Simulated assay, not measured.
Amino acid sequence: MTQHVSRKMTLLLALTCGAAVGNIYFPQAISPLVAYSLGVTPSAAALVVTAAQLGYAAGIFLLVPLGDRLPHRPLIVTLLGLTGLGLVAASTASTLPHLVGAGIFVGITTVIAPILGPMAAGLVAEDRRGEVTGLLLSGSIGGMLLSRAFGGSLGEWLGWRAPYLLSAVIALILAAVLAFTLPHTTPATRQPYPALLKQTIMLLRTEPDLRRSAFNQATIFAGFSAVWTGAALLLTGPTYHLGAHAVGILAFVNAGTMIAAPVAGRQADRRGPDVVNRVCFVAVIASALVLALGALGGTWGLVALAIGTLMLDIAMQSDMVANQVRIYVLRPEIRSRLNTAYMTCAFLGGSIGSWLGAQAHTLFGWTGVCAVVVVLALLPLAAARKQFAQSTA
């Protein structure tokens, strides 16, 4: 049912999306600090990043469908409260397994953004839906980019536990605020929970365009995650000898990429998502070639890292928008479950990419990470060329 949702409420929801999504990304900046503090190797500490993304993929699959089944206010407030407790548990970790376990829990419960998006779209009139959706997406992208700057700088100043504690405080405050301000909603379906999960799996089997979009995003997001996991190891390693704050500064430089999403959306509307996808695959490969120059070190190496990550971030976000444009027109009545299937695959790819990035850096250095990105981008590009050839035959 359409309600009046004020701009202040929309901004609050966008802030909530950013804070929730940021819990998945700030560990990328502090994993070298975790390695030093807990006495483990940098590649082992990178498991904290993998754990958060793997938990997020599980949370999207297991919890996001509840947005169709339960009233949104108690669901979101409960998840924020649990996220806050999980972050507190992570801040007290004395061993890597403890921190990895807490990271998985935080990842599972911090799936606020993919629940708030469909909820907000259903609360506003059709002529405001694009505006509200765009603001929430900008909040999520801002959280993704700025959380690494926040985590790296705060971790370098006060230690790696500080970002977890401050994020816990933010989550608990937002839970308290939303408990009194979030609009009332009624469930969209009475289907049993197991049926919702089963339908999500069935959609991947029955919708080829959904499978294609999920594969596209899983591979590109894997490359994105590999780069940012490897970048933390590169910048704090012997090539640059910088602190964790350097990862945050590099991420902050890329904050301007938030404008890429609406531009990509307009191009997907005008030219079709397939064209945008192919451009993004080529851009990811080009970004990897630029990023490889980061192994040189020094000023020019840092310039290459800044330009390369900027190219990669824009390509990843644009690819995500194009894929979502494709899946949202498939079956509008179950859009939330389509997005659940899509985002689950995307973050599974991201968690695998984080692991690949850490392993590639350990075995082959920064150039190995860049090679992983190229291979991952070639997979969907080859599939897209094959499909294009078949469609024109």
Rank of each mutant, 00 (worst) to 15 (best):
A383D: 04
G101L: 03
L165A: 14
R335I: 02
V124D: 11
L289T: 11
L242Y: 15
A322I: 09
L210W: 10
G143N: 04
L330D: 14
F180S: 08
Y328C: 04
V372G: 03
T50A: 15
C17W: 10
G357F: 14
Y36K: 12
G18H: 01
I352G: 06
S225Y: 14
V49D: 10
T257Q: 12
G301M: 10
G59L: 06
I334M: 02
L33P: 11
I141C: 05
L203W: 09
L75I: 06
L80S: 05
T50Y: 14
L348C: 13
A288V: 11
L146G: 11
G243I: 00
G349R: 04
T299R: 15
G368D: 01
T83R: 10
A29D: 04
R331H: 10
L312Q: 07
Y25Q: 10
L11V: 03
C17D: 08
N254K: 01
I220G: 09
A20W: 06
L363R: 11
A244M: 06
V21L: 00
I170G: 05
V77L: 08
A315F: 06
S37I: 13
G357K: 06
D274T: 12
P74V: 04
S318P: 09
G139R: 01
G308N: 07
N23C: 14
A20T: 12
V88N: 06
T239R: 10
A222P: 05
I115N: 11
A295F: 05
R335L: 05
A383F: 03
G298H: 10
F26Q: 02
L204N: 06
C345H: 01
A14T: 00
Q387W: 06
T367Y: 11
G294M: 12
V321W: 01
T200R: 00
A44D: 06
A19W: 05
A90Q: 12
V375S: 08
S167M: 14
V48H: 07
D269R: 10
L178K: 11
G223H: 12
P262M: 08
P27H: 07
G59V: 04
A283M: 15
Y164T: 00
A322F: 07
A341Q: 08
L378I: 13
A171F: 04
A175E: 15
A179D: 11
Q267A: 11
M202Q: 09
G134C: 14
R129Q: 07
P332V: 08
L379P: 06
R69E: 06
T229N: 12
L330R: 10
P187Y: 04
A29T: 07
R326Q: 09
I170Q: 07
A306Y: 00
A175H: 10
A322K: 03
S138W: 05
V34Y: 07
V263N: 02
G22W: 07
G357D: 09
Y56V: 04
V5I: 14
G152D: 06
T189H: 01
L70C: 01
P273G: 08
S37K: 13
A226N: 04
R271M: 08
R385G: 05
A35Y: 02
L38H: 12
